[in-house]
C-alpha cells in the first residue's frame, strides 16, 4: 500500500474509512443482533439470547405467502431483465447506430428518476387499461427498475468481450447461431449469472413498485411494511429482515466471485489486445 511519489498518504484517512465503514454497517448488523434478543423492545442492554423470533417465522402463513410471492416475482424479474438486458447490452457494445445514446439513456433512466414518479405513472397506465393489479404488474414494473442494474453488469461483461473471437469462429466455418452458442454464450456466461443474481436481489428488496402495484398479493417488503405499524410484531420483522439481509449478501458475494473470476480470465485473454 505504499503510495507512489506525489500521492499523499494521510494518517487520518484510514481512520476516516474505518468510521465510514462502521456507519455503513452498523444499521445492518443491528437487525441480526436484536433478532436474537430475548425482548420485544430494541433497547440496550441486551436481554439474553433466543431463537424464538426465528421459530415464529415458520408458523406465519401470511409471511410464507409473501415469501412465495417474492420468489415468483424475483425469479421472473431476474430472467426478464437479463434477457432484455442481453439484447440491449449486446447492441450497445457490438454495434454503432443512430439514436444509441437516446436509447441507452431511456433504458438507464430509472437510475436518475424518483422511483415514486414512475411507480405512480405505471399505476396510472395499468389502471387506465383496466388491468387488475397482481404479481404480474409488479414483475412488469420491477423489470424497468432492474434493467439499469442488469445492463451495467452485462455491458461490463460484454465490453471485455473481444469481437475477434466471434470473427475467429466464423472464420473457422461456424455459423452465426453456432458462434453465439459455442463462443459468445460461454464467454459471457459469468456476466449473465451475475446479472440474474443482481436483478433477483434488487427485486427481492424493492418496495415502492411492489407497494403500488401488488394489489392483494404482497411481496416480502410490502408484508414487512404492513407489520411495522404493530410494535409487538417488531422482533419477528427483525428476524425476517436478518434472513433477507443474509440472502442478499450471499447472492451478491456469489455474483461478485463469479464476475471476478470471469474478469481474471478475460483480462488474461485481453492482455495482448492492448
Amino acid at each position: 500500500m505504499s503510495g507512489r511519489h506525489g500521492i499523499p498518504k494521510s494518517r487520518w484517512l484510514p481512520a476516516y474509512v474505518t468510521v465510514y465503514l462502521a456507519f455503513l454497517y452498523f444499521p445492518i448488523l443491528l437487525l441480526p443482533i436484536f433478532s436474537f434478543n430475548n425482548a420485544a423492545t430494541t433497547t440496550f442492554p441486551l436481554a439474553g439470547f433466543t431463537t424464538k423470533w426465528y421459530a415464529s417465522l415458520w408458523h406465519n402463513t401470511a409471511l410464507l405467502e409473501a415469501a412465495r410471492n417474492s420468489m415468483i416475482v424475483g425469479v421472473s424479474v431476474a430472467i426478464l431483465s437479463t434477457v432484455l438486458g442481453i439484447c440491449a447490452a449486446r447492441a450497445i457494445t457490438r454495434y454503432r447506430f443512430r439514436g444509441q445514446r437516446a436509447a441507452t439513456g431511456l433504458i438507464m433512466a430509472p437510475l436518475f428518476l424518483p422511483e415514486i414518479i414512475f411507480a405512480v405513472s405505471l399505476l396510472m397506465i395499468i389502471l387506465q387499461l383496466g388491468v387488475e393489479l397482481s404479481l404480474v404488474t409488479v414483475i412488469l414494473g420491477q423489470v424497468i427498475f432492474c434493467l439499469p442494474y442488469a445492463m451495467s453488469v452485462l455491458i461490463s461483461g460484454f465490453g471485455g468481450f473481444d469481437r475477434s473471437l466471434e470473427e475467429a469462429s466464423l472464420d473457422l466455418g461456424e455459423t452465426a447461431i453456432g458462434t453465439f452458442r459455442r463462443v459468445t454464450l460461454p464467454v459471457v456466461a459469468p456476466a449473465l449469472v451475475s446479472s440474474l443474481l443482481v436483478s433477483f436481489t434488487v427485486s427481492l428488496d424493492e418496495f415502492i413498485l411492489a407497494f403500488f402495484l401488488s394489489g392483494t398479493e404482497p411481496t416480502l417488503p410490502v408484508y414487512i411494511w404492513g407489520q411495522l405499524r404493530f410494535a409487538a410484531k417488531l422482533p419477528g420483522v427483525l428476524a425476517l429482515g436478518s434472513v433477507m439481509i443474509l440472502i442478499s449478501i450471499l447472492l451478491l458475494t456469489l455474483s461478485e466471485i463469479i464476475r471476478r473470476r470471469a474478469e481474471h480470465r478475460l483480462r488474461a485473454q485481453g492482455a495482448l489486445n492492448a
Binding site: P27, L31, I224, W225, I245, I249
Partner: peptide, 8 residues
C-alpha cells in the same frame, strides 16, 4: 450494505 433492503 446498499444492496440490502432499503426498507429494512
Amino acid at each position: 450494505p446498499c444492496w440490502t433492503s432499503y426498507l429494512l
